[in-house]
Nucleic acid binder design. Structure first.
Length: 467
RNA sequence: GGGGCGGUAGCUCAGCCGGUCAGAGCAUCGGACUCAUAAUCCGUGGGUCGUGGGUUCAAGUCCCACCCGCCCUACCA
């Protein structure tokens, strides 16, 4: 499975919304790897946005400096968030990217033509709108832009796209998003402008082949990353031979991924992605996350305060598949204390302690099994329902705690203790395995506590945060 | 303006094709237990399932209208 996240433009540091998409993609990637499937998980940054140029100007630093600094912050999420991406592409520096964009441009040249265009442009969205204000809430007023641009005959692909989405060749989840895209496509597709004047872009970006006065529309440039990041044989392996190619993204950019991008590929005669999963947005204490106006929450700061498991767990266990989710530190803490400290941590602690006290640390063999959980997790993830999948994993914690109360090892004879503790240790080991895609650090801690045939006295896995 | 989604216990939410669907978790309260991180387990309370109609033997569950929130799309005089 080839899994990608969108590549954010780097006019600012990453916020919790970026972390959501990365952690979802990571859980998916880890889950499929664990099943023994070949996986390539890719993310990166969109360095070529005009927005980056403007941010640099506002800060009074060279564009290259600002872009490098912020891109490093995005790539630096890997450690703090336990991300397992296989490649990180930066559109301004990846060796094959520029050549790839040019190659695609030439491949679709039969669908390109020049036209004068005039419209209202939102720099924040890198998109034209019929009227203001910008629906994404970017502050700056829309610019009236008038220039001679290259246009792509999107209109030609309306029927093919519609059919592709209808017959599932391009699966869009959740279904509401699929219907939304269909409605848009079937309402009629107009040709789109795919270049910008180089002057207006301050010379930043990739020049149009054969027309240095224009740069390639940044979205065209950015979308291409999904294949330009695949060097050499990787392209054949992951874009041609791979049966499942999944793009994860926020609801604001569906159109680019579900309409423009497939149309580009169709025009170029290249294979298409097979699945698109759209997540909604995070709000913070009821406020929209905005990089400029302070609603942003730094995921690394959260990890520093509460640990990676608390942050990942909130993102995966609390965010619904459909609908915006509201983040507050209180909710994160409540989840961490209730689930990680009281649930998981305490379970492992009590089980290992009993093994030490009653059985001198010797681990008995497993008695019962927890069938059903892996299947439930897999089914939920096939629908990109991370919350349901996380809940399915957690049934092990709940069942195990109930099992302790039911069998009361402290009241049993040696044989009874071996039977019930054997089951419990086995449950903890299963838990470690099932938890790995969601909370790799937690999984490692659990595994360390219950591995081997002789267990040591445990230390609490998670202290309570709130006390 | 058109279209879509959501509005279910104090909070976060499950409830697919109509008939144990009035639920779970958290919070509250009561009880149990002592292996464990004042943790765990069991139970109680609490809701006119947005509003008003309609279809049906039977409707959160279908239909219509309206109110509120969000999303997509378009902006006719």
């Amino acid at each position: 499975m080839y899994i990608t996240t969108t590549i954010p433009y780097v006019n600012a540091r990453p916020h919790l919304g970026h972390a959501l998409e990365l952690v979802q993609a990571d859980a998916l990637a880890r889950h499929h790897r664990r099943r023994g499937e070949p996986v390539r998980f890719q993310t990166g940054t969109d360095d070529n946005s005009l927005k980056n140029v403007l941010a640099a100007e506002a800060e009074g630093v060279p564009v290259r400096e600002l872009v490098d600094r912020n891109a490093a912050a995005f790539e630096g999420l890997r450690g703090p968030l336990d991300l397992s991406f296989d490649s990180f592409i930066r559109t301004s520096s990846h060796p094959g990217h520029r050549a790839g964009v040019e190659r695609i441009w030439r491949a679709v040249e039969h669908d390109l033509y020049q036209r004068h265009y005039e419209g209202l442009y939102c720099v924040g969205c890198e998109q034209f709108y019929a009227a203001g204000p910008c629906p994404e809430g970017h502050q700056e007023p829309l610019q009236r832009v008038s220039e001679e641009n290259w246009f792509f005959r999107l209109s030609r692909y309306q029927d093919v796209l519609s059919e592709l989405i209808r017959d599932g060749g391009l699966r869009i989840e959740p279904a509401a998003r699929r219907n939304e895209v269909l409605a848009f496509v079937e309402a009629g597709l107009a040709d789109i402008s795919v270049s910008r004047s180089a002057a207006r872009a301050r010379g930043w970006g990739i020049p149009v082949p054969g027309d240095p006065a224009q740069v390639v529309y940044v979205w065209w440039d950015a979308l291409a990353n999904y294949i330009t990041a695949l060097d050499g044989g990787d392209y054949e392996r992951w874009w041609v031979a791979e049966p499942r190619k999944v793009h994860l993204m926020g609801k604001g950019v569906i159109r680019f991924h579900a309409v423009y991008w497939p149309a580009m590929l169709l025009s170029a005669g290249l294979p298409l992605p097979t699945e698109i999963f759209v997540h909604d947005y995070l709000t913070v204490a009821g406020q929209k996350i905005s990089k400029s106006s302070g609603g942003a929450v730094d995921p690394v700061a959260l990890v520093d305060s509460y640990g990676v498991d608390a942050v990942r767990w909130w993102l995966l266990r609390e965010v619904p598949r459909v609908g915006d989710a509201d983040f507050t530190e209180e909710r994160l803490i409540a989840r961490a204390d209730e689930d990680l400290a009281n649930g998981l941590g305490n379970l492992v602690n009590r089980v290992v302690t009993m093994v030490c006290r009653f059985l001198d640390g010797h681990v008995p063999g497993p008695a019962e099994d927890l069938a059903g959980v892996p299947g439930a997790v897999h089914d939920a993830l096939e629908e990109y329902d991370f919350r349901r999948a996380a809940a399915a994993v957690w049934t092990i914690v709940e069942e195990a705690n109930r099992y302790v109360e039911r069998t009361r090892p402290w009241q049993q004879d040696r044989a009874g203790q071996e039977a019930s503790l054997g089951t419990l240790v086995h449950a903890c080991r299963t838990l470690a395995v099932q938890l790995e895609p969601f909370l790799p650090t937690a999984a490692a801690r659990v595994d360390a506590a219950v591995r081997g045939t002789r267990l040591a006295r445990p230390k609490p896995l998670y202290p309570r945060v709130a006390g």
